[in-house]
Nucleic acid binder design. Sequence first.
DNA 1: ATTATAACTGACAACCTGTCATTTGTCAAC
DNA 2: GTTGACAAATGACAGGTTGTCAGTTATAAT
Lengths: 196, 196
Amino acid sequence: MPSQTFFNLDIGKQEKLLEAAKKEFCTVPYTEVSINKIIQAAEISRGSFYTYFIDKNDLFSYILELNKKVLNEMTREVIVSCDGDMRESFLQLFDIFIQRIEANQLSRFLKNIFLYFSIYKEKFERPSHDLFLYVKDFISLKNLKSSDLEFVFHLFMHNLLFGITEAVKSANISFVREQYRGKVDILCYGIYKEEK
Amino acid sequence: MPSQTFFNLDIGKQEKLLEAAKKEFCTVPYTEVSINKIIQAAEISRGSFYTYFIDKNDLFSYILELNKKVLNEMTREVIVSCDGDMRESFLQLFDIFIQRIEANQLSRFLKNIFLYFSIYKEKFERPSHDLFLYVKDFISLKNLKSSDLEFVFHLFMHNLLFGITEAVKSANISFVREQYRGKVDILCYGIYKEEK
DNA sequence: ATTATAACTGACAACCTGTCATTTGTCAAC
DNA sequence: GTTGACAAATGACAGGTTGTCAGTTATAAT
């Protein structure tokens, strides 16, 4: 979160900095983002920057926060308009995003977040993909509905990784284990009571 | 991948470098890993390092690769021993990992990868958690089995983010859209044909 | 006009990475 | 034993980074 000093600035100056930052975050991946570049573009001194924000991550989180509000609001609205039905909500949410992408209403910054997210995902999903290729012929299709097997495999892996992570962190392993097993069954049998 | 020069080194020297690197990767998060520290610990010169590996990521990928083989092999074995049944396989995989964690057989490096993964996850799942709190009261439970609602919400969000990411990247949006809708139904109705 | 407070500055120390001209080691051939 | 050729190792260097802090400037209030 920015310091009070930052909020004391006149809006123009605040926005100039935020715009410069957004531009930089959109141009290069997170690790390569240079505070030098940002302060040059925003025409402020190094010292000033560090009175506003703790570090790069603080700045990034703040920009994310600004966008999050809009997204949160939108998500809630969609869910309400769908009478709380998750399936319908998430089908609609996707379409709304697609529409915005096509209409170019999705800010460059958000697009970049998604692409950044995608690089991040790749780092963890590429291994998962390799593993899938390595084992897929051994997976029995007997009990499975015909569905996107790789996707399903990723869900299971995702869940497994998450479970192990929790286990590494947690003291109460048997609790983590029960949670894990419950989630496996959600994946197997779904979350909806009846078929459509 | 390391250069041929690296493989020409005698095994002792190779391992000394890899051990130093592992230690460093286990001590600080990826971005803070310092090649300086590694070469000091491994007692090699800066120039040598750069003839062995392209950069930090190259080194990291290689160490990951060394571990991956073992994990891939294990996964396949478990799947085969479960006659290809995914549910049973993933239940067992978790238990095997837990066992290794408890027996301290899981290398410090792998543990750190999981913890590192967890920091990463947090960055993307924290927002999702906040969002969940923001909308959960509006979600209708009518059609849902009683199950871990937050987990389910994460799965939907995960899927949505992935779908949007694909849409941002892809040219064929209607294909991405169909895939997405299929996945939503997998989440809703599960992947197994019959209830247990 | 004086003072107190808030905001700003840029030089600085302490790091980092990747390069490259040069030195050192090794081994085969003469 | 000497030479030459190639592989490997070196560390100083250029050009970057971040975060700090003592000093300066602006603003507002008495």
